[in-house]
């Protein structure tokens, strides 16, 4: 049985906090450092269905736009509305207040291939 709350990481530098069958998704602190100051976050509408690998969010820095992918199949439950007026929250608090969206998880087995914090840190070298 899974613990109540667990955080997973992807090789695309996303974090997924799973709590009670709901996944909250953001980009890692490493990712925001690489992107630099964000000026716009293009968020999906709640209710949108997503498949694993779909582009759900585009984060825009001064210089470039980067895709953020859905880590699992599911449906968007909520989005971080604060980012529309303050996209810099992703820079200042990437792994907490700068979360991007939450979603239901259609198939929890899709989480099995993801990394834990320790394994993710190792990929950063």
């Amino acid at each position: 049985m899974r613990p109540l709350s667990k955080t997973y990481y992807t090789e695309d530098h996303e974090w997924i906090r799973v709590d009670g069958g709901v996944a909250t998704v953001g980009i890692t602190n490493y990712a925001q450092e690489q992107l630099g100051d964000l000026v716009f976050v293009d968020l999906p509408a709640p209710g949108t269905s997503a498949s694993k690998g779909d582009t759900l969010v585009v984060v825009e820095s001064v210089k470039a736009a980067s895709d953020v992918f859905s880590p699992v199949d599911g449906e968007i439950k909520s989005i971080n509305e604060a980012l529309s007026s303050e996209p810099g929250l992703v820079n200042s608090a990437a792994e907490s207040d700068g979360w991007l969206w939450s979603m239901s998880i259609a198939d929890e087995s899709q989480l099995d291939g993801l990394m834990d914090a320790e394994a993710y840190q190792k990929t950063l070298g």
Binding site: G36, D37, V39, S61, V62, K63, N91
Partner: peptide
């Protein structure tokens, strides 16, 4: 050099 520690917004 594409940016320095202050970041692109502050540099600009």
């Amino acid at each position: 050099p594409v940016s320095y520690p202050p970041g692109v917004l502050k540099e600009h």
